[in-house]
């Protein structure tokens, strides 16, 4: 769920600013969205991609303690990637991050 919450934070920060490209999203606002449980209710609208049924169920039914654990882990991931640079944009991280196959075997084939 850590990955899902990080993704929702990036998505919501991008949507708030209506950015045309997700790799231009600054990490600081995404990190701020992880300070409460608001992301529990964020869902893509239609053409914006889909969450798995299992993840939607977990987001809707997890106890506050469980959600809090996911939220903290996601916060830690974004905080580490922010690297104390408040102006950090997602694409700035590209050269630090490992290259992973874009095959969705870990999540689900997106339509």
């Amino acid at each position: 769920m850590t990955v899902v919450l990080v993704a929702l934070a990036l998505y919501a920060a991008c949507a708030e600013q209506e950015l045309p490209r997700c790799d231009q999203v600054p990490l600081r606002p995404a990190l701020d969205l992880l300070s409460d449980d608001g992301l529990r209710r964020v869902r893509p609208a239609g053409v914006g991609g889909r969450l798995r049924v299992t993840d939607v169920h977990r987001l809707a039914t997890a106890s506050p303690e469980t959600f809090e654990r996911w939220r903290r882990a996601a916060h830690r991931v974004l905080d580490a990637n922010l690297d104390d640079r408040d102006a950090m944009v997602l694409s700035d991280r590209n050269r630090h991050l490992p290259t992973l196959p874009d095959d969705w075997t870990w999540y689900a084939e997106q339509p």
Binding site: T2, V3, V4, V6, A7, L8, L10, Y11, C14, A15, L19, P20, R21, C22, D23, P44, V47, G48, G49, R50, L51, V77, L78, A80, N81, L90, R93, H96, L97, P98, L100, D102, W106, Y107, Q110
Partner: peptide, 23 residues
């Protein structure tokens, strides 16, 4: 976003999120 980048925003964010977490 789909018109500009050719990829759905959440799909793109999920892929980025996995890379951020792996790192």
């Amino acid at each position: 976003v789909v018109t500009t980048t050719g990829i759905a925003p959440l799909t793109d964010c999920l892929h980025w999120a996995r890379r951020l977490c792996v790192w």
